[in-house]
Design a protein around this nucleic acid. Structure first.
Lengths: 371, 371
DNA sequence: TTGACATGTGAGACCGGTCTCAAATACGCT
DNA sequence: AGCGTATTTGAGACCGGTCTCACATGTCAA
């Protein structure tokens, strides 16, 4: 039974004693600071190895005040979008010698707040957050007050002067809308997954994510400059909840004056559009044109392949972590908002709008004629 | 300039002093242990609030020996499969009052080892690991030796007596293979994403993941019992690297005696099959039948929709975290391996095998005839 | 030989909590 | 009032590292 006693772990004092030196000396060797003679170094290292010593990072962090850990709070890890971003963060962090503590807010500001407290309590050296709301931000200010750097990911908060890394949502939405207009569309819908009290868009007060607002502005701006009146009427929100998406989409498509093109805020919504269309017996791009945000790998394999707005999600994460690390290491320049460019990848989900589309019956005729 | 001095954070001593009580008393109130009179409690809480006190969890962990944190090492967070699992872990952990530190091994045993050291150094209360190799497991034994509970996720290690939560890969592969056999197939390929020195399967020594081995056994067993000779010849490995997948698949499909059905180890591989088939001018299910592991949401929206083996990934994560928490809290029963059931979801990617398939030319004929 | 200075080492304070223990106070009861 | 017991409180050790500082030793030049 020659086993390390599992009750108490080996400490630096144990090593020191075993090596016949003082605790301070052993610490110097094992912590790689101060000085020690080669002979002593060797003795201590040998003893450490023999005893299976492993530094207690908690104790270390407590005295140094640095934990070499960054906290990340993300809307939903299950979402591949964030999965990729987290991978980027993780890679950049590890490359710089930092670990990552991950938390899920579920896009709920209250949970986000709780997560902040926990991470602050764990004394992370800095945080990366995808804020769930532009309104509830006291806890983000609290981070600032605690003196720890904060980087916002994917979204910004107007009144918070911190670094942020986002994509050019406004321009992306504008470009996508323009592409649809060029194809002849005049009735263009934007369907967002963002949580809202009412699926029908009534105004900016309903929106609590900067990205969503930017995109809506992009769609509206592009529509307006093409002389389209009241483009807001085709904007729909809250298509994320199961079942809800189908309802919103089918009502939109079966209503009078239905849109001939849809811009989907993410893949999940795009998927929902696909399913609803199939149920309704409509097809892309004959009956409806579609563009989706996020170039998930599968979007190229549907029939037809979907035209998407490709976002550099991994880079979003990677950059934000790099910026955070730089802040932690201590750079004093003013906070900046970095905007990463998106690309419109044209595939085959855009076509000319059907000439007449008063009722579903007509639609089916139409589809038969074309297909 | 009424601001909390950002240099040093508020400690329990500060609160104690401000409330006019001893450090010990303040600690008792704020740490919710021991006793204190209502009056004192109120005074301390008020002072804590006023000063913006936030407990230093590091210090707390150091004395108590518990960090209320679990470490998770996963093959690749970017992969939606693990994304879902992590979500499950995260939910279960938070519900039990634990936080999660996440690490990425990139399916590399060396990185996994490094991650273990780091997490152990951070004194996590327990770990959940998806081991990258059944061979390199010293570090996992090290975890055991440190006395901290370990739960294996998705994969097992034969000589390691710890809890594990996996899916019934063997049976799943068997059922899928049987489904293909019932449809008339006799030449069934299994294409795995697992890293290997050689894409052609030579024997178990190449495989370092329990799941992969189980699945191969399942495919082989089902094939054998249907009287199929040498089913191993259609097994291919290492289809994960970009470009490599296409090469492996197209070579397999263009070779003599090509398989008429493919079982793909995950979505990424299935996607690759889709793309390669399109490039080759072949179609599903006329020229080739396909079953894929993992029921990603998009698999129902391709044409044809893909028949998949649905795995309870979220539950996999959720259960493993629950088990880990139970171990941490201290349950002494022998380690168990929990096996979660998968379901074969039949969609439309399985058809009868084409009668003759010597050359691609014949294939095209065939496709035209059927389509 | 001695003084100046670099280098190696150990004692002990410290980080911010928890926890043990003993003293102080309050309470109940005869 | 007087005593036993329960409750509240404070002093100080402790967790496992880091870090300051004083002291011991070694090296070299004057």
């Amino acid at each position: 039974m020659k086993r390390t006693t599992s009750k108490r772990l080996v400490t630096i004092s144990d090593v020191a004693q075993s090596a016949g030196v003082s605790k301070a000396t052993a610490a110097r060797v094992l912590g790689s600071y101060g000085t020690a003679s080669p002979v002593v170094k060797e003795k201590v290292r040998e003893a450490a190895k023999r005893l299976g010593y492993q530094a207690n990072e908690l104790a270390r962090s407590m005295t140094t005040g640095k934990s070499k850990t960054i906290g990340v709070i993300v809307g939903d890890i299950e979402n591949p979008y964030f999965g990729q971003a987290v991978r980027g963060i993780s890679d950049a962090a590890h490359a710089a010698g930092f670990d990552v503590i991950l938390s899920n807010s579920g896009e709920d500001a209250a949970k986000e707040k709780a997560a902040v407290r926990v991470l602050l309590g764990k004394r992370v050296d800095g945080l990366i957050v995808t804020p769930a709301s532009v309104y509830e931000t006291q806890h983000l200010h609290e981070i600032q007050r605690s003196g720890r750097p904060l980087v916002l990911l994917d979204r910004t908060i107007p009144d918070l002067a911190v670094d942020a890394v986002v994509t050019d949502d406004r321009q992306a939405a504008e470009a996508a809308t323009r592409a649809l207009i060029e194809a002849g569309h005049r009735r263009i819908a934007y369907i967002s997954a963002t949580e809202a009290d009412d699926p029908i868009y009534r105004g900016p007060h309903q929106i609590n994510l900067s990205t969503v607002m930017e995109r809506i502005e992009g769609v509206v701006a592009a529509s307006r400059s093409a002389g389209i009146e009241n483009p807001e009427r085709y904007i729909r929100l809250g298509a994320n909840r199961r079942g809800e998406g189908d309802k919103i989409i089918s009502e939109l498509l079966q209503g009078a004056d239905r849109p001939t093109a849809i811009l989907a805020s993410d893949n999940v919504v795009a998927l929902e559009v696909f399913k609803t269309l199939r149920r309704l017996g409509m097809s892309i791009p004959q009956d409806l044109s579609l563009i989706a945000f996020h170039d998930a790998d599968w979007t190229s394999v549907t029939s037809p392949p979907i035209t998407v707005i490709a976002q550099p999600v991994y880079d979003l994460g990677f950059e934000s972590a790099q910026i955070l690390v730089r802040r932690i290491t201590g750079s004093g320049d003013a906070p900046r908002c970095r905007v990463l460019a998106t690309t419109l990848i044209k595939r085959q989900s855009i076509g000319a709008p059907p000439e007449i589309q008063e009722s579903p019956a007509v639609l089916q005729n139409n589809a038969a004629k074309i297909g």
